[in-house]
Amino acid sequence: MFLIECPWCGERAETEFSYGGEGGITRPAEPDKLSDAEWANYLFMRTNPRGAHQELWNHAQGCRRWFGVERDTVTYHISRSYVLGDGVKD
């Protein structure tokens, strides 16, 4: 169990959140022009690092907003959480 800081609601228990996987994966602007390998890379291939990991979390039982988290996948220590996109809180 760890505490996650929601950029809007502050620190809450892990069980309030749902996990959204690796962050920073951008949907290709023109999927039609991708090769099968490029599409597979976007859809399935993951960095899955042992160490610092950029990931997405959703405050499912709170404000229900998505945000980014940098977490170590060995120690589970969270170094920061941040607002996605242009970084402006709405």
């Binding site: 996987g21 690796e22 597979a40 890379n41 399935f44 291939m45 993951r46 960095t47 899955n48 690092p49 042992r50 996948t73």
Partner: peptide, 18 residues
């Protein structure tokens, strides 16, 4: 569980999450 770690040593990416 360490498949992705060894794969990255060989310059490969896998569709795996640990």
């Amino acid at each position: 569980g360490n498949a992705s770690v060894v794969a990255s040593m060989a310059g490969l990416r896998l569709p795996i999450e640990s």
